[in-house]
């Protein structure tokens, strides 16, 4: 097909590609796990928030048959996986891009997808840890009882739901400078989470804010997650999936544009 394929084929392509992906993922995981500035807040904030607002102050009226701790488990789960994705992809990428780590890798025969893959797996692993911790808190302290299938499908939708936000983080990480990235990410992440009803159920927001929510991607992920535990959604699942898919596509287009633009810049 092209020279890349032939080079790979000539040197034992498939197993070597697997080895690259494995080592790349291992390096990303180790790098991130050893960085308390990312690892701690990413994990601890959703856990603490859920502990305070979901459990300690959680004796609010139920939404239908769903208790407040169960309802908020879904929304804080969404909050957590978005954080892991945006900070891992957005802030981490912006910092490393400025330091030249990406450039050092681009100067090698590394398949560009390997770097993306390693980062994606790392974000998913952290999302998984966030979700596991929330589940443990919910079951142990929040009296949340779900069937095994409901636990699994909730975890599944949360992990899958981190993908659109990884794409969004990728775009932000390629657009922002290393100093502005944390501020930009927080300025988008925190208000968007509140307005999407991740901290307080969207039903409790004033009506003018409630009107904004359906235009925000986290709202749709929250509706899909809530549907897993039996909260009826005002929008159909199809609409929510379409909204998230569109958001992902748009993020990837912006990321691609920013990547191309970056090419002439880093060397100025």
């Amino acid at each position: 097909m092209n020279d890349t394929t032939t080079t790979l084929a000539a040197t034992g392509g498939f197993s070597r590609t697997l080895r690259i992906l494995g080592l790349q993922t291992r390096a990303e995981l180790l790098k991130t796990a050893r960085l308390p500035a990312y690892a701690l807040p990413t994990l601890a904030f959703p856990w603490l928030f859920y502990l305070f607002f979901g459990i300690v102050f959680g004796d609010r009226p139920s939404v239908g048959s769903v208790t407040a701790p169960a309802y908020l488990l879904a929304t804080y789960g969404v909050f957590g996986v978005i954080g892991a994705s945006l900070f891992g992809f957005g802030v981490g990428l912006a910092v490393e891009r400025a330091q030249g780590w990406l450039l050092v890798q681009r100067a090698t025969p590394m398949p560009p997808m390997a770097a993306l893959f390693g980062r994606l797996v790392t974000a998913l692993v952290f999302s998984g840890l966030v979700v596991a911790g929330l589940f443990a808190i919910a079951a142990a302290l929040g009296g949340v009882h779900l069937g095994p299938l409901a636990w699994l499908s909730l975890a599944g939708i949360l992990l899958a739901g981190s993908l659109p936000f990884c794409a969004f983080g990728l775009a932000l990480g390629l657009l922002c400078g290393p100093n502005s990235a944390p501020a930009v990410v927080n300025l988008i992440y925190l208000p968007m989470s509140f307005l999407s009803g991740l901290w307080l159920p969207v039903e409790m927001l004033p009506s003018y804010l409630r009107a904004v929510a359906p235009f925000l991607p986290p709202y749709h992920l929250a509706r899909l997650a809530l549907a897993r535990i039996g909260v009826p959604s005002p929008v159909t699942a199809g609409v929510s999936f379409a909204a998230l898919a569109g958001f992902t596509a748009l993020s990837l287009v912006v990321a691609l544009w920013a990547w191309r633009r970056d090419e002439g810049r880093t060397w100025g």
Binding site: A27, K31, R34, Q99, G100, L103
Partner: peptide
């Protein structure tokens, strides 16, 4: 072409590697 880079090594001026990886891991 990425294939051409299989025979090339580069030490760039701007490169800073992640602080939290070990030498042998890199």
């Amino acid at each position: 072409s990425r294939g051409a880079r299989a025979r090339v090594g580069a030490m760039l001026q701007v490169g800073r590697l992640p602080d939290t990886l070990r030498v042998r891991e890199l």
